[in-house]
Amino acid sequence: MLEIDIQKRLRDFELEVKLDVEAGQTLMLVGDNGCGKTTLLNLVAGLENPDRGRIALDGKVLFDCSKRIIVPPEARGIGYVFQSYALFPHMSIYDNVAFGLRIRRMAAGEIKILVKEHLEAAGLWEIRAAKAANVSGGQKQRAALARALIIEPRLLLLDEPLSALDVRKQATMRRELRETIRACAVPCIIVTHDLRDVASMGDQACLLEQGKIAQHASAEDVLSWGLGADPDGER
């Protein structure tokens, strides 16, 4: 289980979040641009540090201000899919997915078996030699997810994983993503702007406003938010 209870002073407001995500559960984080969604993911991943509070994953403390515990991002075991996918442009799809395993000094044969398994599951084995910069948006998204999943993370963080795809691809990827996340059985936080993502992939949802949780409900109840405070004013 992921436990978050943190505060951080941002430029315009104070980010103050307290929430738990059970293993196998997907929390959808929605809110306007600049409300602190991506910052929250970065704080959990250890890419930024909170000013106060505590973050724990499966009972292991990742950050504790009072005890001065700060586990660096490389030791947190978190699978993070960035909004831009952040595939290393100088590497092939294969090398991108193998990156995390090579750091763990796994044997070359074992790496090959695992990478093949993940790339085949993602439908990317045929283009394994292609440079990451030269593949389509959908392929990038699947490669980024495969790269995050292959290290067997204890937590998944996805920052607007479907926003770079066209609408037709989004529906297919939404289904694939839901199945893949369910199969992992780890806590998962997905940042999104799209209420369709919330309805189809989430178990619970949080509406973040100016760094505070304005609403917290089950994913089914999210559509009713549109009647009151629309979390996505652009649509």
């Binding site: 991002p73 490389e74 952040a86």
Partner: peptide
Amino acid sequence: DVSFENAARTLGA
């Protein structure tokens, strides 16, 4: 892009 650096760190580098 700083996200390349962040991605590598979260992957264990």
